[in-house]
Design a protein around this nucleic acid. Structure first.
Length: 406
DNA sequence: ATGTAC
C-alpha cells in the first residue's frame, strides 16, 4: 500500500502522484509511476523524497520497479542541476543487452552444462580461440583489463531465452525477432571499475556533488563503455561455448548512468532510457521478460523500469526463502528453465518470489503510456555463477579461481 | 554490486 503522504491524482484510468517536497528554494517534484495496487515500499518512496530535498534537485521519477537502495532509491530517474555520483551508484554502466543466437537444438540440461565459467576473467591462453577477443578491437576503456568477461554477482546474469509471445509483430520484425527464436540476455555492469570511480569520489566528498564534473564524467563515460563492451564479451563467450556465432546486440541500454539532458544532470539508478529506445525489462530467474518500445516523456524523466524490482531485501529473501523453497525448485523453475548457480545463498536471494510481478511492472508502464510491449521472452537457462563441482573447495580456492589464478 | 576485511 502506498503511504498516506502520497496524494493520489486520477489521470484517466491510471494512478499518478505528483507533489512537492518542502522546504526548498526550488522544490523538486516527485512522481511515482505505479498503480495503487502495485507493491511499492514506503522506504523507497521516502528515499525519493530525501533525494528530492537535495540541493539543485528538479524532479524525481519513480519507476514501477522502485525499491529501497543504499541511500538512494533503485528504479528512479533523478534530474538535478547538481551532479551527485551516489545517485548513479557504484555499478556505473550496468545495463541489459539482447543478442540473437542461433542453435540447432535447445535442451536446457545440455546447454546449462556448456556455459563457461563467467566468474573467471577471459584468459589469453586458456581462451585463446575465443571470438570474444574480437570484441576488444582497440583500447579497453580506462585501461581496465581486470575482470573482463566476468558477469559479477547480485542481480547480474546471462540468460538463454526463447521469444515467446509477439505483441507488436512489425516492431519485432524490425528487430529480427520471431516467436520461437533464441536470444542471449546479458545483465552486467562495469565490475570493479565503476566501484573504484565511486569510491574515489566518496572518500573525499561522501554523498556530496562531484567537485570536478568533467573529470567525473570522463571516468563515468569510460565505465559506461566498459559495461557495454563487457556485455558483448560475455555474449560472445557464451555463444562460442554453445557452438554459435557471436552477434551484435539488438538492444543494449544502460540503467545506471548520468546524462546531461535539457541542461540538467539526469541520474538514472535502475531506470533505463525511455526516450524512443527499445529496452529489455528483465523478469526474474523463472518468469518471462518483456522487450518494450519505450516512449517516456518529461514527467517520467524520459525513463522506464529496468526489471521486476526487488520486493524483499536480500536478508528477507534468504530467511523466508529457506523456509519456503528447496534448492531444487529454484534450480528448475516453473517455466521449465534451469538456473546455474552454485551459490545457495544467492539462489535464495534471487528467488522469483523475492521480486515483484513483472506483469504488473509492465502493466504500470503501459497504463502510464511509458512503453509498449513488443515481445516476451521465456528463460531456458539462466547463468548466475558456476555450479559447484563434486570436489569440495575452500573459500580461498573459490576466490583465487574467480580471479583466474587457479 | 563491489573488492576486501573479518
Amino acid at each position: 500500500m502506498l503511504p498516506s503522504v502520497h496524494t493520489p491524482v486520477r489521470k484517466a484510468s491510471v494512478f499518478l502522484s505528483v507533489h512537492r517536497s518542502l522546504p526548498q528554494s526550488t522544490p523538486a517534484t516527485v512522481a511515482v509511476f505505479a498503480s495503487p495496487t502495485s507493491w511499492i515500499e514506503s522506504d523507497a518512496v521516502a528515499q525519493c523524497h530525501q533525494v528530492a530535498a537535495l540541493d539543485g534537485m528538479v524532479h524525481v521519477a519513480g519507476m514501477p520497479d522502485l525499491h529501497p537502495g543504499k541511500g538512494a532509491p533503485i528504479g528512479a530517474a533523478m534530474a538535478s542541476t547538481v551532479l551527485y555520483p551516489f545517485l548513479v551508484g557504484s555499478d556505473i554502466g550496468c545495463g541489459i543487452a539482447v543478442f540473437p543466437i542461433k542453435l540447432k537444438r535447445a535442451v536446457p540440461e545440455k546447454l546449462a552444462a556448456r556455459f563457461p565459467d563467467l566468474d573467471r576473467p577471459l584468459d589469453p591462453e586458456q581462451d585463446a580461440d575465443d571470438p570474444a577477443w574480437a570484441v576488444l578491437a582497440g583500447d579497453v576503456p580506462a585501461g581496465h583489463v581486470e575482470g573482463l568477461g566476468t558477469v559479477g554477482r547480485g542481480n547480474h546474469f546471462v540468460e538463454l531465452a526463447r521469444v515467446d509471445t509477439v505483441l507488436e509483430p512489425d516492431h519485432a520484425e524490425r528487430l529480427g525477432l520471431r516467436a520461437g527464436e533464441l536470444v542471449l540476455i546479458v545483465h552486467s555492469g562495469s565490475r570493479g571499475l565503476g566501484e573504484r570511480i565511486l569510491r574515489a569520489h566518496t572518500e573525499v566528498h561522501g554523498a556530496g556533488p562531484a567537485a570536478d564534473v568533467a573529470a567525473y564524467l570522463a571516468m563515468h563515460d569510460a565505465a559506461v563503455r566498459w559495461g557495454s563492451l563487457n556485455r558483448r564479451l560475455l555474449a560472445a563467450r557464451v555463444a562460442h561455448a554453445l557452438g554459435a556465432e557471436p552477434t551484435t546486440p539488438i538492444v543494449d541500454e544502460c540503467h545506471n548512468l548520468v546524462e546531461i539532458r535539457d541542461g540538467v544532470y539526469l541520474h538514472r539508478k535502475g531506470a533505463a532510457p525511455g526516450d524512443g529506445r527499445d529496452v529489455l525489462v528483465a523478469g526474474t530467474r523463472g518468469t518471462p521478460s518483456y522487450l518494450v518500445a519505450a516512449h517516456a516523456g518529461a514527467e517520467a524523466n524520459h525513463s522506464v523500469a529496468h526489471g521486476a524490482g526487488r520486493k524483499m531485501s536480500r536478508a528477507d529473501a534468504l530467511r523466508r526463502g529457506r523456509a519456503k523453497h528447496t534448492v531444487e525448485e529454484l534450480r528448475r523453475t516453473p517455466v521449465g528453465s534451469l538456473v546455474v548457480c552454485g551459490d545457495r545463498q544467492l539462489l535464495f536471494e534471487e528467488a522469483p518470489t523475492a521480486y515483484k510481478r513483472i506483469e504488473q511492472v509492465v502493466a504500470d508502464l503501459v497504463a502510464h503510456d511509458l512503453a509498449t510491449p513488443v515481445v516476451t521472452t521465456v528463460p531456458l537457462v539462466t547463468y548466475k555463477t558456476p555450479d559447484v563441482g563434486s570436489t569440495p573447495r575452500t573459500a580461498r580456492h573459490d576466490q583465487r579461481r574467480r580471479r583466474g589464478r587457479v
